[in-house]
Design a protein around this nucleic acid. Structure first.
Lengths: 342, 342
DNA sequence: GGCTGATTTGGTAGCGCTACCATTCGGGTT
DNA sequence: AACCCGAATGGTAGCGCTACCAAATCAGCC
């Protein structure tokens, strides 16, 4: 009596079934699938026919165990609902959709400890690459990344000391450029409104401050921040607070577009003229900024492109030709619109 | 000479190392980790000590291979940037963050074929559960889901014929309720503006039509749709088109909040009074709807809760007590605001 | 013809874990 | 005393694949 068909597996065909049907060794099937150029064309055809007939699909778990490397990209972002990171993630997905790589996405909730925890979950899987947002990893996280044994790309920011590779832009410069623009067009009592205040927002604030100090106009009372997560409604409230604190306020640089939109709505509600009485500049340049009335000046960031570039660099590193330029600055672009057209 | 330490693995401790150190069999370590109640307290303590000392972490790939079941939830959504799905995904993540389950997220780009392809990638991993958006799977996808050998939850909608379980609400009813509200407050020439027009938007449109026909007011020229992806700027353009087509238009029901916001901005720009001249109702009720000026009436949907509930049902099914109520309708809530307060 | 080196193919031995079954042991039951 | 039963532990045999090495094949060349 024949040994019964594997008890555990769901009866799916295995590589051995394909090998038997094609009349070759199992390892040749494995090779034909992974490195076709190393198998003669004839066998390749035979094997392909057997694969098609049986509907064979390699088991990714067995593959990962045997090769000590999973075809998985680990991706860590601080938020899934923040459009900014959603765009980065979309870029990553689009770049990987035609590859054999799967994606495992982790949500750190802007917490360094949570990032650590997730890296501890991700690392044992031996991912093919890791993409993490930001450059402010805890020492433990940094060590985990360095020892992950795979390409690592830090995204959203650039900095002096990459774990491995980096794609992003300077938030400090972004904040400074936005503020300088407001100064240029004649605003003087320019406020900063920032929610969440993660490290990137802190650096935008630093850029704002540098510009204001250079103009001799910095005043700490112009700065309104909160660690509370950002939202349009919060933007509205914070603007009211800022205005109560400094009634002479004539412009605001917001740490993101949600806040800026909240400011705009509050101006409408309170019949404050934009840009005449109050100038507004946002950050990120979401689609709606150019549609708003009045349209809102914002710093356009290349989120989608950051995701794509991060994957491209990781794939190159996996393929063995690590890009020579390890830190890529994709820059930003100030979009001047009605909200600051004095 | 001692056999060299495993060549392939990165030298990470294995279950055998832990077993040796704790002076027990490997299988007992495995059990202590997965079913602690079946191991005596003394051994449990010894094993835990060895685990801690070695820093042992089970290899998820080996585990998946041996048990023919990966600790992975497969999640398929049509879009990563659409806030609606981002919220569902957030609910899923939050519900799973304390569990051993990882998440594999797929982006179908609103395409049935892409959904099929992704299911073909997901299924061979033998996920612990699958969560998919919508109820309009292709026949192939449906078969893949039925044969996946794991709990399946369809989310965002309810329908008569679940593959396994369902959590959502009726988009038809949502569309009808929104339209009935506009009729009730006195609008007559109510337009429908819809972008993307995926199956869910189609059903909202059907609900709109049912309400309009019941009132004897349906007119096909009132309906403006496009398959183009939705955005605020598109909402603005479509509203202009709709108004050019039907100058007597006195209200619009938008298939989502982005479109509604675009309509609002265009009204500002063209000095059209809201809600006096034009009433506006959106769908989903994003945070900004209540902050907008005027605030925008919208149909609040419980996206985050849908994600949480889907996971709860899947976990129950995995644990062996499949919920008796296999189709859960979480409903929706019409939020009446200024934009339709005639 | 025999040698060399490149190319193609296959066998063996795991990867690290768990399913399955066997074994042991203590405490009832009859 | 023989028997049974459940609880606790362990051994064995894979899960389906690939790394590693060996073997076979085929030029090309002296």
């Amino acid at each position: 009596m024949i040994k019964p068909r594997s008890r555990r597996g769901g009866g799916r065909p295995t590589i051995a079934d394909v090998a038997r049907k094609a009349g070759v060794g199992a390892i040749t099937v494995s090779r034909a699938l992974r490195e076709p150029e190393r198998v003669s064309e004839e066998l390749r055809r035979q094997i392909q026919a057997a694969v098609d007939e049986l509907g064979y699909v390699p088991d990714p778990n067995a593959r990962a165990l045997a090769s000590a490397r999973a075809e998985v990209f680990g991706v860590l972002v601080p938020s899934l609902t923040n459009n900014v990171f959603a765009e980065v993630v979309r870029g990553i997905y689009d770049s990987l959709s035609d590859s054999p790589f799967r994606i495992q996405l982790g949500n750190t909730h802007y917490s360094g400890l949570e990032e650590e925890r997730l890296l501890q979950v991700f690392a044992p899987q031996r991912p093919a690459a890791l993409i993490v947002a930001g450059i402010d990893q805890t020492p433990t996280s940094r060590k985990l990344l360095e020892n992950a044994g795979c390409p690592v790309v830090q995204v959203m920011e650039t900095g002096p000391d990459p774990v491995d590779m980096m794609v992003g832009f300077s938030h400090f410069d972004g904040g400074r450029t936005a503020t300088e623009h407001l100064l240029e067009v004649g605003y003087r009592r320019i406020g900063f409104i920032g929610a969440r205040m993660d490290p990137r927002s802190q650096r935008r604030l630093a850029g704002y401050r540098a510009a204001m100090e250079a103009a001799g106009l910095f005043d700490p009372r112009l700065v309104t921040t909160t660690p509370v997560p950002s939202s349009v409604s919060l933007g509205r409230e914070m603007f009211r607070d800022a205005l109560a604190k400094v009634p002479t306020l004539d412009a605001v640089f917001c740490n993101n577009d949600d806040i800026a939109l909240g400011v705009l709505f509050e101006c409408h509600r309170a019949s404050i003229a934009v840009p005449k009485t109050i100038g507004i500049v946002g950050f990120n340049d979401l689609d709606m900024m150019q549609v708003a009335f009045p349209s809102i000046t914002s710093v356009r960031t290349h989120r989608y492109e950051i995701g794509r570039r991060a994957v491209a660099m990781a794939l190159a590193a996996i393929a063995g030709n690590r890009p020579e330029q390890r830190v890529v600055d994709l820059g930003f672009e100030l979009k001047r619109r009605e909200s600051s057209a004095r």
